[in-house]
Simulated assay, not measured.
Amino acid sequence: MVVENHVSLQPFNTFGIAARAQRLARIRRDDDVLALVRHPDWRPQETFILGGGSNIVLTGDLRQLVLKVEISGRRLLREDERGWLVEAGAGERWHDFVAWTLAQGWPGLENLALIPGTVGAAPVQNIGAYGVELQDRFHSLDAIDLETGEPLTLRHEHCAFGYRDSVFKHERSGAHGMGLKGRALITRVRFWLPRRWRPALGYQDLARKVAETGITDPTPRQVFDWVCEIRRAKLPDPAVLGNAGSFFKNPTVTPEQCADIIGRDPQVVHYPLPDGTIKLAAGWLIDACGWKGKSVGRAGVYEKQALVLVNRGGREDPCTGGEVMTLARLIQTSVYERFGIRLEPEPVVVG
């Protein structure tokens, strides 16, 4: 295990915010975690688990010991007439893993292409895009309890998946609570990819691709290519323009609330959900409030997609986490004043 002191975190967060970690440990295998947990000075509450840094906003230097997860590896565990069980190390880049599964002929993750971050961070956020969420393909994961050093294997029913939510985002409540925020370090994740594959084309952007191309029965690779094309047209590459992807969750409202908004703003983008609620497009709400292209200091709203906040200062003169959160709060106030809806940020604020 490698432990470094006074490490710049700018290369390790996709926003490109300049901050430092007092200490950073590179976790490349399970034994690295166990060595830390068994150390006499170990205090799990004084750690921060870092994956790909694609869903965080750093508002200052970190005094906690940063555990940077770099566990690699991907493999097929089982194949039968129903499908494939595949596994990846928590440090694997998510998009690379998706592309690898398709290259092997195992469809199912194509709608989740080009989502930044690592495999280990994907269950924490329950990532999702274009009608598919991680929980739809999730089988199980391995983790290590940072309090006890005990190995954990969690299946779908243990993870409390919700919209951009999971048990890994909540503190433990009471002696027997299952909240695992900051307590479980994910080491490997497994996915079940069924042979009976059908393309998920319900989202407007993909339906438009079907209409444009005339391809009504696309292959998994075709869906993958479409998703990559759509995302590249809408979302900035973090290597070029720092960002954390979609900054706000799409809010859900009752049919009555949606009808009220449609009465005032007929163009509002909305999607009915199976439970009877309505999902609204947060990007549309922000754009309707006039924020697209606006800036606060060196933090700005992306010109092509109002749901994305960006670092306009680049790597040389980056925005601060404070500027990002000031901009975010101003957007939240505007949306609430116009629509009566409180937008909830997706990224974790650390510092």
Rank of each mutant, 00 (worst) to 15 (best):
104 Q>L: 13
231 R>H: 05
73 G>A: 08
306 A>C: 02
211 A>K: 12
281 A>F: 11
9 L>S: 07
171 E>K: 10
226 W>G: 11
302 Y>N: 05
127 I>D: 12
15 F>C: 07
146 L>D: 10
342 R>L: 12
31 D>L: 09
274 P>H: 04
273 L>H: 04
94 W>Y: 13
172 R>N: 11
122 A>C: 06
302 Y>D: 03
161 F>H: 10
127 I>M: 11
154 L>F: 13
306 A>W: 04
77 L>F: 03
261 I>G: 00
123 P>K: 07
138 F>Q: 08
4 E>M: 10
111 N>F: 06
341 I>Q: 05
265 D>C: 01
194 P>Y: 04
87 E>Q: 15
339 F>E: 04
201 L>W: 10
120 G>E: 01
199 P>K: 14
103 A>G: 15
46 E>P: 05
269 V>M: 06
300 G>D: 03
311 N>F: 09
119 V>S: 09
97 F>G: 03
35 A>E: 15
174 G>Y: 09
183 R>Y: 07
334 S>P: 00
137 R>K: 09
113 A>F: 09
183 R>L: 06
324 V>W: 05
172 R>M: 10
324 V>C: 10
264 R>C: 02
147 E>T: 06
9 L>C: 08
257 Q>L: 03
292 K>V: 02
51 G>A: 10
233 A>F: 06
329 R>C: 07
215 I>F: 00
160 A>I: 00
74 R>D: 03
103 A>S: 15
178 M>R: 13
289 C>F: 12
82 R>H: 11
350 V>R: 10
244 A>G: 01
85 L>V: 13
28 R>F: 00
140 S>C: 12
288 A>K: 13
48 F>P: 00
236 P>V: 08
106 W>Y: 15
309 L>R: 12
143 A>F: 08
97 F>D: 08
11 P>M: 12
275 D>F: 06
274 P>T: 10
107 P>E: 00
305 Q>K: 01
212 E>T: 01
234 K>S: 09
138 F>E: 04
